[in-house]
Design a protein around this nucleic acid. Structure first.
Lengths: 234, 234
DNA sequence: GTCAAGATTCTTGTCGACAAATAAAATACA
DNA sequence: TGTATTTTATTTGTCGACAAGAATCTTGAC
């Protein structure tokens, strides 16, 4: 197998090595190009990205810190598995962060923040209209990430980003059975959330975010149980 | 300056290098042995811990992921500064995590969890009785960390640990002006929290945790403003 | 004396190599 | 044939070295 020419010829600036590896791996993990449980061979990766093992390892340490990969001591590092048994902890955290970040955005946002949030919402609406499920997943993440950003709390935002990425992984996993009737509802809910933030109505923002989160959690749970049933029927 | 003999003679097991460096650095940062803003020289550190730069760097990457150090590209990495201008974001996050973890502990704890929590509380009470402020700070952290552990939500626990460590840094900074009248009150509040958790009274656990958090936040704010006044009077 | 350009030193980012630890294969034995 | 044990091979963790940038020092012009 020959390497892609881009990886060979493109000269990367000094210092951008780890970030490059980190970005590549992160994307591949979140997009399930590297499915949960798949081992990551440092040497192979070093050859593929045409660089030494050192920056690869540093990127892996960073990913391990974010929980995306798990390093078995003296053994291979693997893409972290999704813990289906404790999914409720994920849902709890996701729901609370939806609420908190939206509340804070209603309180602390600037006019410029609103512009960006509206732009993200437009992206999302476009993806829904195009019935592009993959784009929906990605743009939906950006929409909520931007709201968290407007909330100006890096602690909450940091956890929320991590949860949103984990959610992307989950959604990709059940992408095949993605129900495309619901998203239109999401568009409307997003619009309401934007209105509440713009009006600085904290209580309403909280309530809408909470309902929105419940909606998403329910959809994921439906996907999972539907998938279970299908597997049993096989 | 000669190195400590322990670092020289002690043979460390293979694979424990990064963890060792990480633990040493983390402790020194949290205990303000390395004050905020101080640069971290990789070579110097490598000599002090008598190992190569590679494990040092990997430990630094991990610490950077947790926000304890900041790496300037192509420049030295420094111990992260405390952002006094945005302390309210820290207080917001800390308060919410106090509440959430205590709630979840009330809901999901096992009898063994309670034993450990009570043991931590005993440690804290002993530190208060001994008027050992440094021990108070440390044992208080362990007490709440154990409650978070009993809550069984790694997402919340992870953020909470980080916030508790950051809080330790803050408290150390104002350690000199530590008011030793308040801690007795903390002991009582801790007891009440344990009782609420044991009774699985979620609402009461939430309320107590919220008040406890407010108490701590207020104390830190008092320390800071007192410190400000003193500096001005100089 | 002050400032700018060039040279030098120092630190970081990356590399290739080696040794310990583990996994896989081969051999011996029942 | 199946299992235990040794041998081989692969992979990780660590090391020393080198080159690119940044910081510092030196020199020179005004």
């Amino acid at each position: 197998m020959s390497q892609s020419p881009a990886a060979q010829t493109t000269e990367r600036k000094r210092g951008s090595g780890v970030k490059f590896v980190y970005d590549v791996l992160r994307d591949e993990i979140i997009d399930l190009v590297l499915p949960p449980g798949s081992p990551i061979d440092e040497i192979q990766l070093a050859e593929r990205l045409s660089m030494s093992r050192t920056p690869i390892r540093e990127a892996l340490v960073r990913l391990a810190g974010e929980g995306l990969v798990t390093t078995l001591p003296n053994r291979s590092t693997v893409v972290s598995n999704i813990d289906f048994l404790n999914l409720h902890t994920f849902f709890d955290a996701l729901t609370l962060m939806y609420r908190v970040t939206t509340r804070l955005a209603a309180e602390y946002h600037t006019p410029e923040d609103l512009d960006i949030i509206r732009a993200r919402q437009a992206d999302f609406a476009r993806a829904v209209e195009a019935q592009d499920a993959l784009a929906m997943i990605a743009t939906n993440r950006e929409f909520h990430a931007e709201i968290a950003n407007a909330g100006r709390n890096p602690y909450f935002a940091g956890l929320f980003y991590r949860l949103l990425d984990e959610g992307r992984r989950l959604l990709r996993l059940y992408y095949s059975s993605f129900d495309d009737r619901l998203p239109q509802r999401y568009v409307t809910e997003h619009e309401e959330i934007i209105a509440a933030i713009a009006a600085r109505d904290v209580a309403r923002a909280d309530k809408l975010a909470s309902e929105h989160a419940d909606q998403i959690v329910r959809q994921i749970q439906n996907m999972i149980s539907r998938d279970r049933r299908q597997r049993i029927e096989l």
